[in-house]
Amino acid sequence: MLATGGERGNARLVECRQPGAHDRGIFYATFCRRAGMAPVCSNPKHEITTVSLTADDVRKVARLARLGLDEGAIAEYATQLSSILDVVDHLETADTDNVEPMSHPLDLTARLRPDVAQATVDREAFQAIAPDTAEGLYRVPKVIE
C-alpha cells in the first residue's frame, strides 16, 4: 500500500478511464489540495475517477483484523469504506503545522501503582466462560511451529 501525502501535498487513489493507457489502471495521483488542485492523470487529457479504497485494500485490512470475509462482503465494504474515507479526507483542509498531536483529552501523566501482588485469580470462574479448556489451559487448534 502506498502512503498518502504529508501535510501539504495529498495523494489520491485514482483510476484512469483511458483503456490500456497504463500498466496499472489504478494508481496514486499526487496533487496539492490546499492550492485548490484536483488530482489528474499523468496524462492530463485522460479522464480519471477517484477511488479511496480498493477490494485489495479491504482484503489486506480484513486479514490484519482477522475478519474472514467473502468476496461479496469485500466489494460492499470497499464501497462503504471509500465513502467514509471521502468524509475523512476533509482533514487535509486543516492547517496542523506546529500542532501537537493530542492522544488524550486531559493533559495528565501516569499515576503509578505500588508493586504489591494480589493473589486474586479465580481460574475456575474465568474458565467457566471459556470455549475450550482442559488441565487449566485454554485450548486452540494445534499450532504448528
Binding site: 500500500m1 502506498l2 502512503a3 498518502t4 501525502g5 504529508g6 479504497l53 485494500d57 489486506k60 485490512v61 490484519l64 483484523a65 469504506l81 475523512v88 482533514l91 487535509e92 486543516a94 496542523t96 500542532v99 501537537e100 498531536p101 493530542m102 492522544s103
Partner: peptide, 21 residues
C-alpha cells in the same frame, strides 16, 4: 486497521490527533 496501517498512520491517525487538539 486501515488508518493505523503502515504508510497511512501519519496521514490519518497522526493528522486526526492534531485536528483533535
Amino acid at each position: 486497521a486501515y488508518v493505523l496501517s503502515a504508510g497511512y498512520y501519519d496521514a490519518y491517525y497522526l493528522k486526526a490527533q492534531k485536528t483533535r487538539r
